[in-house]
């Protein structure tokens, strides 16, 4: 590898003992704590934790010996990383060109109106996040939405609203029952 090998690392596990950190440690170990693996490690952190916290960035910075400002710079550069936890349910609206010409914006508008929030936000009760994606690559099925990981194609604003309301209401009811 042309990448420079630097001074041996002082590797120490995260003091919290949180198991998710163990998983992150495995990723870093796989990359031999190379500075160049920063992006891969961040992706893994996003996957494991669901979002990137300050604590997490500091941990990665110290483990990979990458300057903190660089870690912050990289994390804020890529769209993949979110800095707040997502809602219980999330709906990704594809706004790729194909979806756009087939009316993805109307789906976004409808959901925004329904939940009274902008795209990219999470409802105050943490129940639902509305996310915009550049293209999920299922252009043949435009317009496409991804609700809780499930892809739905050839959608209409009404149908999406209905779907989302269903899952959110169900969760709310479950919560209410648990509380009771």
């Amino acid at each position: 590898m042309a990448a420079k090998k630097k001074v041996t690392k002082q590797v120490k596990a995260h003091p919290s003992g949180d198991e998710r950190y163990t998983s992150l440690d495995r990723t870093m170990k796989r990359f031999k704590y190379e500075k160049d693996s920063l992006l891969e490690v961040l992706i893994s952190a996003q996957e494991v934790f669901g979002y990137i916290s300050e604590d997490l960035l500091m941990y990665i910075s110290s483990q990979l010996k990458v300057p903190m400002s660089q870690v912050y710079g990289v994390a804020t550069f890529y769209h993949l990383f979110t800095f707040e936890p997502l809602g219980e349910h999330n709906c990704i609206i594809c706004t790729g060109t194909a979806c756009h010409v087939k009316g993805a914006d109307r789906i976004v508008d409808a959901l925004s109106e329904e939940f009274g929030m902008e795209a990219g936000e999470t409802t105050a009760d943490g129940m639902f996040s509305l996310i915009i994606a550049r293209c999920v690559g299922s252009c043949g099925l435009a317009p496409v939405v991804v609700l809780d990981g499930q892809v739905h194609g050839k959608e209409t604003p009404e149908a999406v609203n209905k779907r989302v309301l269903e899952v959110v209401t169900r969760s709310k009811e479950e919560l209410a029952m648990e509380a009771a």
Binding site: K4, K5, K6, V7, T8, K65
Partner: peptide, 8 residues
């Protein structure tokens, strides 16, 4: 300077 060193 050790931060920048190849060998410490």
């Amino acid at each position: 300077m050790v931060e920048h060193a190849t060998l410490f």
